[in-house]
Amino acid sequence: MSTPAEPTAARLAGLVPGLALALVIAAVATLIGSMLPLVGSALPAIAIGLAVALVRRPSDRLRPGIRFAGSRVLQFAVVLLGTQLSLAQIVDVGLESLPIMLVTLAACLVAAWLVGRALGVVGDLRTLIGVGTGICGASAIAAVAPVIGAASADIAYAVSTIFLFNMLAVAVFPLIGHALGLDQEAFALFAGTAVNDTSSVVATAAAYGAVALQGAVVVKLVRTLMIIPITVGLAVHVRRRAAAEAGAGHPPLTVRRAIGLVPWFLVGFLVMAAIASLGVIPDAAEAALGHAATFLITTAMAAIGLSTDVRALRATGPKPLVLGGILSAVVAVTSLVVLAATGWI
């Protein structure tokens, strides 16, 4: 007779081939990202995964591990991202940058809904580009994708779109800052709220000065907290939509039900942030955990590339790219307007 441990062991063994393939691609993409910091590792991982899938679609033997890498590994990465924040950073920078973050996020999400509908961009892709542009690029996409059940093609397209306009920001934002006469602190707020990916924030702010660099990175990390209310809100929306489609109506949102809607990995994110706030994580370990989170996101992106339906990606067309460009412009302009309104310019 088989024991309960045997099926579990068999399931775990079934994950190994696909997960190993995603890890190998992630290692190659990480090497590319180390040589080309502005490119990062997420986009090469998706590109390599897509290339492998084009040459030969993953077999049934590989698919369980690939699915695991594209979902659970992605969620574990979000948990580890919590180690990069502390309450001290949030208090010091949050009050200063919160008005800009809230206004730019609101402007981005409203524009994503209005412009996305006008362009005919489908719901999940519109949502991913909106939260990726308004919050923090691939990290926000990683948190939101499993909640809304986004398709691999939509995730791949959204990450690629965010990457393109981040690269444009690296070249253009320092010129804008100098043209407007922004000091280092003001530019830190601008770059931290209007550029998404961490590597792009670093590159953009470093070109402006050391003070701008330090401030922009902290602003960007605090901005990551916006993942929490947005993801919980989307979880509520998805649950209610599913109930409506099933004809079950909208059950009252009690405290107990609301707690149940919070994704487990966001709870893990908050727990890790609380631990980091206690100062018990050594600097070296904190840096290592940050690298681990990035590598796990890269692994998940590799899996997403491997499982992406290229025909669906082609059928999407250029409209989501147009949406990404418009949203990036909305966030940048809104950030500058709020800076001017609050006396930073």
Rank of each mutant, 00 (worst) to 15 (best):
Ala10Cys: 08
Gly14Ser: 00
Leu15Glu: 06
Gly18Arg: 09
Val24Ser: 08
Ile25Phe: 06
Ala29Met: 01
Gly33Tyr: 05
Leu38Thr: 10
Val39Pro: 11
Gly40Val: 15
Gly40Leu: 12
Ala51Thr: 11
Ala53Met: 09
Ala53Asp: 12
Leu54Glu: 05
Ser59Asp: 12
Ile66Thr: 10
Arg72Asp: 08
Val73Trp: 02
Gln89Gly: 15
Val93Phe: 07
Glu96Arg: 15
Ile100Ser: 02
Val103Lys: 02
Val103Ala: 03
Val103Asn: 06
Thr104Asp: 01
Ala106Lys: 11
Val110Gly: 04
Leu119Arg: 02
Val122Tyr: 13
Thr127Gln: 14
Gly132Lys: 11
Ile135Leu: 05
Ala138Asp: 11
Ala151Gly: 12
Ala156Asp: 08
Ala158Phe: 07
Val159Phe: 06
Leu168Gln: 06
Ala169Pro: 07
Asp183Thr: 13
Glu185Met: 13
Leu189His: 00
Leu189Met: 03
Ala191Gln: 11
Ala203Met: 02
Thr204Phe: 06
Thr204His: 00
Ala207Arg: 05
Tyr208Cys: 03
Gln214Phe: 10
Gln214Tyr: 09
Ala216Cys: 03
Val218Met: 15
Val219Lys: 01
Leu221Gln: 04
Leu221Met: 08
Leu225Ser: 00
Ile228His: 03
Ile230Phe: 05
Leu234Glu: 08
Gly247Glu: 07
Pro252Met: 07
Thr254Phe: 07
Val255Ser: 15
Val255Gly: 14
Ala258Phe: 08
Pro263Arg: 12
Val267Lys: 14
Gly268Glu: 00
Met272Asp: 06
Ile275Phe: 02
Ile275Lys: 04
Ala276Ser: 15
Leu278Pro: 05
Gly279Pro: 08
Val280Asn: 03
Ala284Gln: 12
Ala288Gln: 14
Leu289Glu: 04
Leu289Pro: 11
Leu296Pro: 01
Thr298Trp: 03
Met301Pro: 02
Gly305Ile: 06
Val310Pro: 05
Gly317Met: 13
Pro318Tyr: 00
Lys319Gly: 02
Ser335Asn: 10
Leu336Trp: 05
Val337Ile: 15
Ala341Ile: 08
Thr342Gln: 06
